[in-house]
Write a protein that binds this DNA or RNA. Sequence first.
DNA 1: TTGAAAGCGGTACCAT
DNA 2: ATGGTACCGCTTTCAA
Lengths: 361, 361
Amino acid sequence: MRRKPPVTAPHPRPERRAPRGRGRRRASRSTNAVTLADVAKIAGVSPITVSRVVNRPELVHADTVAQVQRVIARTGYVPNMLAGGLASRRSRLVAALVPTVVNSIFVDTIQSLTDTLWEARYQVVLGMTGYASHGSREEALVSAILSRRPDAVFVVGVNHSRDSRRRLLTAHVPVVEVWDLTTSPIDMVIGFSHEQVGAAVGDYLVGKGYRRIASVWADDERALRRRKGLLESLARHGLGEAGASLVPAPSTLRGGRQAFAALLDRGTDADAVVCSSDAFAHGVLAEAQVRGIAIPSRLAVLGFGDLEFAAETVPALSSVRIDRHGIGRLAAEALLARIEGKPAGPKVVDVGFQIIERETT
Amino acid sequence: MRRKPPVTAPHPRPERRAPRGRGRRRASRSTNAVTLADVAKIAGVSPITVSRVVNRPELVHADTVAQVQRVIARTGYVPNMLAGGLASRRSRLVAALVPTVVNSIFVDTIQSLTDTLWEARYQVVLGMTGYASHGSREEALVSAILSRRPDAVFVVGVNHSRDSRRRLLTAHVPVVEVWDLTTSPIDMVIGFSHEQVGAAVGDYLVGKGYRRIASVWADDERALRRRKGLLESLARHGLGEAGASLVPAPSTLRGGRQAFAALLDRGTDADAVVCSSDAFAHGVLAEAQVRGIAIPSRLAVLGFGDLEFAAETVPALSSVRIDRHGIGRLAAEALLARIEGKPAGPKVVDVGFQIIERETT
DNA sequence: TTGAAAGCGGTACCAT
DNA sequence: ATGGTACCGCTTTCAA
């Protein structure tokens, strides 16, 4: 099998005479790329054998593998996954739809998703949908991304447009919705209840003795559901919201600072401020520092997300911890299982949350 | 009707009876997806006409367009870009290789890149290479990503492994390296000189009267080149570095805070601390606040990146502004131009930088 | 303006 | 363990 034809450079041969199986054409947009067929010819094996060496070497004799891999290395062959995906109906691509990666609580989740999928030889195409308040392009993005024929879809949130949901359903692809909860997922959902977070925060603060609770909030859909939970909790305790300041998503330190300043300028008498994000809370701390508002003695502050910096602010920020990495990893594992056709796991996974008490409450 | 040259047919097979142009098989992995051929049949036109309606409707009669689009809408047809990309040799995909998106200064650049490309109907596949200090997987990623046949590649940094560089070169695809500068780019480079940033920072601080300048730094390659520029500037002024504390990338508030604490615990007498990132600088501010170190009267602090929060810290952080969005947009435009085969623009674009003086210096 | 034929570069299926 | 054949779904070329 060591048939080694005079191997030189892997470049377009002039030899164009013999009726090869299928006439070769070399399209105009020259792509002098080495193909699997080229490798096969040089290695003196059939194309399918090269394919196996690349994808399932355990099916091929070790000597053949070595021989073929040598040719691959020498020629610099790079598989064409467009062709492979088309033929096998597996793109080895997972689409991830997120509102944004800027100042975002989702990046750790994406990181874990990507890392876990990478181990399984999958790659992630990221689609940024933008927040609804900024004119979401989720629909166009769903179409665009489905045309890549992803083997699975990861999407933040559970409330999608009718059209998006239908497209996702009819794509016949595993879908995991994350960072929220619903009883009727498109396919699977891994997240937590925002209402519960809000309620827990309310109960916690009231339990600590705070009575005049204000909020600094992003006009993001999930965030607003947390606020709803908060207000319901307060109501149960016979309390109302002691003022609120809404800011457009995404959350930034600046936004939180300005929102809190607005709250103060309106003359709030709050003894606690709940924020829809740690970034906002950080902004509140900054503004409080400037105005000489003692925290937590005069004002408590609570964030959301428990980002890495929360433990390091001054004073250290109390927050709500979400297992951001866990969500990404679990999502990847669930999708992989579904792609492999493994028995379906639970449709709904509640990863819960945890209030982390630090110095600001 | 598929006609094979008789000469190649080992077993001249009897003509398929099927009246359909090409025998349909419906592979086992059922993909009851509507194809372009299905749409064509229903609409009573040829496949190529449907293709034109989707991609270049201006070439098709308006009535035909309307008719076909109606069928597309009704059937829920979603083009298969794997097939399209394979046939046309255009994937409409741009690969972006970045160290990380976590706590990252690159996200705005990615955002602008993505947005600009989206307008031109291109999508971005993000590859996270990881920082060298964490075991970079750039090489594997380059291979993996090139197998998707991107129409262009965007990559942070100019120092790649020999292998990566070779692969990128032989991919025969427009490449833009960003966030750094070199006289010998793979193809194009859009960025700024890190040495110059360091030097400018040194000159600036010395000019402001600071003499004992310490640094809180990430062990990232580009960051270290900024430090080199800083040290050279100090040397020119007859000064040395008044201590340094190195931290692993990526930059976080925590890392900066801890590094600064270490510096203090070693008994530094610095009158200024330069940080390799705004996140680090923010951490320095936090630690200074805790320790009651007055800023800037007792200690000046300077960041890098001029992230959105820099203007809002207390006191407001002086920093080095980079046109993060501009780099992303310019990179997208340069790549698009090259994809379209437009006359090549400049190979090297220096977007410069700007020292933003606020309250910490 | 529209269409027929011939691939693009792989993989599935079935033999051997 | 390896190979022959027929596609995967779309676009290109060339012609009408």
